[in-house]
């Protein structure tokens, strides 16, 4: 018997590739605690308080200190005087990391 797929309508959901360990393992992260933005405490896959659409409209930003935030949240933080251009998690100077495009 030969099976030919004429049309397959499949469903998938997207996740940010945060590069966290275990991210590649399909089953491990089902139950793992959801990653949330350290500033707004909303899941990375959700959107920051000022956005309405998740995903490309509300992207993430990676710091060299390995911390990840919603970009909008972090920019807002950096714009305040008290931030002193530091990462809100570890108070190191914020340097946006180059994202490696390939895994």
């Amino acid at each position: 018997m030969k099976v030919t797929v004429k049309q397959w309508h499949a469903v998938a959901y997207w996740r940010w590739d945060t590069g966290a360990p275990g991210d590649q393992d399909a089953n491990a992260d089902e139950d793992a605690e959801e990653d949330v933005c350290g500033i707004c405490r909303v899941s990375f896959e959700g959107c920051c308080p000022t956005c309405k659409m998740p995903g490309d409209d509300c992207p993430l930003i990676w710091g060299q200190c390995t911390h990840v935030f919603h970009m909008h949240c972090l920019l807002k933080w950096l714009n305040t005087a008290s931030s002193k251009q530091q990462c809100p998690m570890d108070r190191r100077p914020w340097i946006t990391a180059e994202r490696k495009v390939d895994r």
Partner: peptide, 26 residues
């Protein structure tokens, strides 16, 4: 997809959706 959106990865929800198939039997 990964090439198109390097920041994102996909997780399949394999049980949802529909398939139209052609089975060629003898």
């Amino acid at each position: 997809f990964h090439k198109f959106k390097p920041d994102k990865s996909l997780k399949w929800v394999p049980q949802l959706g529909a398939v139209s198939l052609n089975l060629e039997l003898e």
